[in-house]
């Protein structure tokens, strides 16, 4: 699904990711943990192709293609989805309008016909229900006046509709209360499939109680310093990150 080799990446000429390698196979869930400033969000943004996040060396292969050669919208159409840490508001553009355009873009890229408005509405209503958002959110402006929790649920709702191959959740758990966290986790678990992978970026172990990862990687100072199974997350919870940084040093 995704193979990152010796990736170095900079933001505003500052090197944030330093020789990072990661292999994600179809169906796997990888958790990326680490202290603040380790480069966790940078990784997600580089993968999604956010302007200003520049890969300076190394390679990324996504579904057999050179990811770094693709424009951000093509990456999205190919099935790479980033659930934003801070979803931005777009006043006056309804959620529905954005989502319909998004789903249509992905479908026509895959050579499928556009969905009829009725079929799309049906899907969108179901997705809303799955993340516990009222249907009225479809008509509201994108993230306009949403609470923090509503924005995150909205991201997961979008993810469900886009049916991506690779889902990157960038600190989706931050700012969520336990109920919202469970709703988000339930949504993700429902989407688990043999041909779909997840990269879950999180600061806390808590989310991983609900979304059980196959692998846990600790990112510190721009590289993966330790990898393990889900027990590593518990160890981190108990000991913090500093022992790892010491160990590496």
């Amino acid at each position: 699904m995704l193979t990152i080799k010796d990736l170095c990446a900079s933001v505003e000429d500052k090197e944030i990711i330093k020789k990072l390698s990661l292999d994600v196979k179809p169906g796997e869930i990888h958790a990326i943990m680490g202290p603040n400033g380790a480069g966790k969000s940078t990784l997600g943004n580089v993968l999604a192709g956010r302007p200003g996040y520049e890969a300076t060396s190394g390679s990324i292969e996504f579904k057999g293609q050179d990811l770094l050669e693709l424009d951000p919208e093509i990456r999205a159409r190919e099935g790479l989805f980033l659930a934003f840490q801070y979803p931005v508001e777009i006043p006056g553009v309804s959620n529905m309008e954005l989502l319909k355009a998004a789903v249509d873009a992905r479908r026509s890229h895959a050579g499928q016909s556009e969905l009829s408005a009725i079929d799309f509405m049906k899907m969108a209503r179901e997705a809303c229900k799955a993340v516990g958002l009222d249907q009225s959110f479809l008509k509201r402006g994108v993230n306009e006046g949403f609470s923090g929790g509503e924005k995150k649920r909205n991201e997961i709702m979008q993810m469900m509709l886009m049916e991506p191959s690779l889902c990157i959740l960038d600190e989706t758990d931050s700012g969520l209360d336990i109920d919202a966290l469970q709703v988000v986790a339930k949504g993700v678990n429902a989407m688990r499939a043999d041909d779909r992978s997840f990269i879950v970026v999180t600061h806390y172990q808590r989310l991983l109680d609900y979304i059980v990862p196959d692998f846990v990687h600790v990112l510190a100072n721009g590289r993966i310093v330790k990898s393990g199974d889900k027990s590593l997350a518990l160890e981190l919870e108990a000991k913090g990150y500093s022992w790892l940084e010491d160990e590496v040093a």
Binding site: R50, G92, A105
Partner: peptide, 28 residues
């Protein structure tokens, strides 16, 4: 904003479609 543009592009919309959608929203 760049953030608005990137949100739209991350959802598969090309830059021109993204701008026109954002501007249309502004005029709603």
């Amino acid at each position: 904003s760049d953030d608005q543009m990137f949100l739209c592009q991350q959802r598969g919309l090309d830059a021109e479609k993204a701008v026109s959608m954002i501007v249309n929203g502004f005029c709603r």
